[in-house]
């Protein structure tokens, strides 16, 4: 009757030493649309592909600014990301209030890591079904962290998570050496190209389905969407076919 006796809750190991509920949560991340993050010596960039449920609906929000110095990009269950982002906003605010300093990215990342891990260790709870990229600049410079439902967190130079993100990661690995010394504009282009590589044949990046989060040393985290990113899309994909370009630009006019 059951496919598997060991996946009913997140406190039971399978005889192979696996916790299936956690693995299912990681599958939920893979169902989400792709997000990409890169850091250089001076900047941290997030790029995300937004999905809309249907033609007439709005697009799902993929990048959430948390504090003035950082933001997150999510892949997976958006409602779980909302819980986590609210928690992160509270923690960031309390750091500013009690210590008058922006919270360290390593600090906030390990705090949500701890929270997510406890969910995998108590009966009646479930892991968060969302993966996050946390990017921004703190006292120690620009950072990018990856967060997984299992509670695992890692600092990354570049990272992509979500559906078909393997293609994006391949692009990032191929260009790994150039990120560190990239300028702000170069870094944005790399992020958009990585995002583009993970799209299926019939899709492309438009001003509607792409969002960008950029922060740098002395540059607060800012979310760019809609017409704000049209020039980046144009210069990044200059040799795209005329017809498609026209299509995508006509949407907002």
């Amino acid at each position: 009757m059951f496919r598997n006796n060991y996946d009913n809750d997140s406190v039971t190991f399978s005889p192979q030493g696996r916790i299936f509920q956690v693995e299912y949560a990681q599958e939920a991340v893979k169902q989400g649309s792709v997000v990409v993050g890169i850091v250089s010596k001076t900047h941290a960039v997030l790029a995300a592909l937004k999905r809309n449920a249907e033609e007439l609906s709005s697009y799902q929000r993929k990048i959430i600014p948390i504090d003035t110095h950082y933001g997150i990009a999510l892949a997976g269950l958006a409602s779980d990301a909302r819980v986590l982002s609210n928690f992160m906003k509270q923690q960031s605010l309390s750091s500013r209030l009690t210590y008058d300093r922006p919270i360290l990215l390593s600090d906030i990342t390990s705090r949500i890591g701890d929270r997510a891990q406890t969910n995998t260790q108590s009966y009646g709870k479930r892991p968060y079904g969302v993966g996050l990229l946390i990017a921004g600049v703190d006292a120690k410079g620009p950072h990018l962290f990856e967060f997984q439902p299992s509670g695992v967190t890692q600092e990354m130079v570049a990272c992509g998570i979500g559906a078909r993100s393997q293609m994006a990661r391949t692009y990032l690995e191929r260009n790994l050496d150039s990120f560190e010394d990239s300028s702000r504009e170069e870094l944005i282009k790399h992020a958009l190209r990585a995002l583009k590589d993970s799209l299926s044949q019939d899709k492309e990046l438009t001003v509607d389905n792409t969002s960008l989060g950029v922060s740098g040393v002395d540059e607060p985290f800012k979310l760019y969407e809609g017409q704000e990113i049209s020039s980046w899309l144009e210069t990044t994909f200059e040799n795209r076919p005329e017809g498609q370009d026209g299509d995508s630009m006509a949407v907002d006019s």
Binding site: T98, Y99, D100, R101, L104, D138, A139, K140, G141
Partner: peptide
């Protein structure tokens, strides 16, 4: 450590 707590942070606390 560039993230070391400064006297201003301590004073706020």
């Amino acid at each position: 450590d560039p993230a070391m707590m400064g006297a201003n942070n301590l004073h706020t606390y």
